[in-house]
């Protein structure tokens, strides 16, 4: 197990290197630079600014400089927000997205698994169609529709929640639901198909033949295997959830990572883009590793791979 973790972590180094290099090159290929603005600045001033950030150096030197700093654990200063370091911004914003993502993850699991399981157990009955229709709606309605609808109803009409912000416990509810619903729908579909597969297996027939109650058959014997695809999906899903959603965080004015991801690219804030992309890539790698470990624990057959 430990050797597997060590091996996977070593493998992640070239992956991150490729991601960083590709991002570095794509950024320089994009038209426009970080210091272009509505009112263009005199060329000699722009040259001074670029010299300040080492952007006047040949590309390969900038590249080595960037990796040198990265190895020292320095992501550099944000170009868009002078005085703020990229690390500083991530450290400030990530806990917010992490918390929101965890709530959303809980909601998606708490809704998705029961709905999917129930739908599978009621296979070919109207209940299945109804449940899966609900899940389809969850997938089809994007968060920029659900978010404002929830907001209008529960905040502006009923006054139960603040319309935006992240100051009180109640501020978590609407954004977490908005973000969680989409994932809940996917999870429901995965859980349903997983459950349908499992219920056809011989060992389930055996369990039933032993005279076990249906509830026990499902809970104790079927569910663990049925959730296999859900767990596989959880890796990228969790990384995506906790690294912040641009849409949800903008709608509810939550100071998380989401807006930084998108705006950094739009602003050509080179260091910020590199920082957020590498951060996200690292999260995905870690979560995929975590998922592999969980799967091994769930399915003994994969343990000796």
């Amino acid at each position: 197990m430990l050797s597997l973790i060590a091996r996977r972590l070593l493998q992640s180094i070239p992956t991150l290197w490729v991601v960083a290099t590709a991002t570095f090159l794509l950024l320089r290929l994009a038209p426009g630079g970080p210091f272009d603005d509505e009112k263009p600045i005199p060329p000699e001033i722009k040259a001074q600014i670029e010299a300040h950030y080492g952007l006047d150096l040949p590309l390969y030197q900038q590249y080595f400089q960037f990796f040198g700093n990265l190895l020292k654990g320095d992501l550099g200063p944000s170009y868009k927000y002078p005085g703020w370091d990229v690390q500083e911004i991530i450290i400030q914003a990530f806990p917010v997205s992490l918390e929101l993502g965890c709530w959303a993850l809980l909601i998606s699991l708490a809704l998705g698994i029961p709905i999917g399981t129930l739908a599978a157990l009621k296979h070919n009955k109207p209940a299945e169609t109804n449940l899966m229709a609900v899940a389809m709606i969850g997938i089809c309605l994007p968060s920029f529709v659900i978010g404002p609808i929830l907001l209008m109803t529960f905040s502006l009409k009923l006054g139960w929640f603040n319309p935006l912000g992240w100051s009180y416990a109640g501020d978590r509810v609407l954004p977490a639901i908005t973000l969680g619903l989409l994932y809940a729908a996917y999870i429901a579909r995965l859980a349903r198909s997983g459950m349908l597969d499992v219920m056809r297996n011989d060992y389930i027939r055996t369990a039933r033949a032993k005279g076990l109650k249906e509830r026990t058959v499902v809970m104790r014997h079927a569910l663990r295997t049925a959730l296999y695809p859900v767990v596989a999906y959880m890796g990228p899903a969790a990384a995506g959830l906790i690294s912040g959603s641009f849409v949800v965080e903008t709608i509810f004015f939550i100071p998380g990572m989401g807006p930084f991801f998108v705006n950094a690219a739009l602003n050509r804030d080179y260091t910020m883009v590199m920082g957020t992309v590498l951060f996200y890539a690292t999260l995905i790698i870690l979560f995929n590793l975590l998922v592999d470990i969980v799967q091994m624990w769930m399915n003994p057959r994969t343990r000796n791979d």
């Binding site: 209008m152 905040s155 502006l156 603040n162 319309p163 903008t250 709608i251």
Partner: peptide
């Protein structure tokens, strides 16, 4: 706050 959210915020 971006304009749409800002207007909702003002209303509340």
């Amino acid at each position: 706050i971006e304009p749409q959210a800002e207007e909702r915020s003002f209303r509340a």
